[in-house]
Simulated scan of single mutants.
Amino acid sequence: MPRPPKQQAKPVGPKAVSVAKETPAAPAKIARTAAKAPASKSAGSKGAAVPGKVKPNRRSEETIANILVATEEVVLQSGADRISILDVCKVAGVSRGTFYRYFSSQEDLLDTFSRHKRDSFHVSLTEALVHIKDPEARLNALFVYLDNYLEQSRARRLLVVAPEYALGFFRRIFHDSIVRFQDVLNIVFDDWDEKLGVRLDRELLCEMIIRYVLSEILVPESASRRLLPIRVKKLAAAMTMGSTSRTRR
């Protein structure tokens, strides 16, 4: 039986050659692309923890609160400049690793501590006054609150052991406190405006009250605290007289 004739191989055209040449180049292209891509950070890479990475929960909030309480104790003992993270951890009963889960540095800790003290003061002030709807009763409640604060506050001790930090803290909260005081005393000022027939300078009145509190921290005088209500009302009366005289002119 005769064998079938062999089929001749078709000549490879330019297009086929082009495809053949491009095919092995693909892996090299992928390799070059991979080389250009930035290396991903491994999950176990070490570094200073940044606050906020830990999801907030009740346990973490309690840990942060304990660290901030310990911070106050350490600062009042050794000052802010010499604060030791190791001492804070020891007083708080946490490890350094736990500390760095929430705070990245000593500066971060002190900054958070300052905000915590400021917010705690304003929250407690609001809670003490907001439920009192009578203007005169709310004003009297403010004076009682400030008197208790000055009696129990550790701000004077902070000023002694860490003067630069304390003065910086007072400067930091000063203008914010003026705004907060205006908020809680709005019904008092509304009542005075209506009775006196003029709009008082609320910002100035609140600034005077805050400056009084700071002066009591710097130069304590328990007798002058009893005169604060009288002085505030005298200032309001003087402002009223000034407004009336300007109106007449």
Rank of each mutant, 00 (worst) to 15 (best):
L109T: 10
G97I: 01
V88Q: 07
D87A: 11
K90T: 10
D87P: 02
F99S: 11
K133M: 11
R115P: 00
V91W: 01
L110C: 08
K117I: 12
V123W: 07
F121R: 14
R96I: 00
C89A: 12
L129T: 13
S95Q: 00
S95M: 00
A92H: 01
L86K: 10
Q77W: 03
E136D: 15
D111K: 04
L110S: 12
F103S: 04
F113W: 13
V123R: 15
S105E: 05
I83Y: 01
A141L: 08
D87E: 15
F121H: 13
H122V: 07
I132D: 09
L125R: 14
V144L: 10
A80E: 04
A137E: 14
L110W: 03
D119C: 00
E136F: 07
A141H: 07
A137Y: 03
S114H: 01
Q77K: 15
D111M: 06
D108M: 08
T126M: 05
A128W: 03
G93N: 02
S78M: 04
S78F: 00
G79Y: 02
Q77H: 13
F113C: 05
S84A: 14
Y102S: 04
R96K: 15
H122E: 05
V144D: 11
H131N: 11
T98C: 02
D134G: 06
Q77M: 08
L109Y: 10
Y100N: 04
S120F: 02
F113A: 04
D108Y: 01
V91A: 10
I85W: 01
T98L: 03
H131Y: 07
A128G: 06
F113P: 02
L86G: 06
L139R: 07
D81E: 14
F143P: 03
K90S: 13
K117F: 04
R82S: 12
V94H: 02
R96M: 05
V94A: 00
H122D: 05
T112V: 15
Y100R: 03
D134H: 14
V144G: 03
V88D: 05
K90I: 00
P135R: 09
Y102H: 15
H116I: 00
V88L: 07
K117H: 08
Q77F: 04
A128N: 06
D108E: 13
R138T: 12
D81Q: 09
Y100P: 05
K90W: 00
A80V: 06
F103D: 07
S120Q: 09
L109K: 04
D134C: 13
T126H: 13
I83H: 03
E107D: 15
E127C: 10
D134K: 14
V144M: 08
S104A: 15
Y145H: 14
L146H: 00
H116P: 05
R82K: 09
F143G: 01
A137N: 13
S105W: 08
V144I: 14
A128M: 05
F99I: 01
R118C: 03
E136Q: 14
E127Y: 06
E107K: 15
D81N: 06
A92P: 01
R101I: 06
L146D: 01
A128F: 05
L76E: 03
Y102T: 02
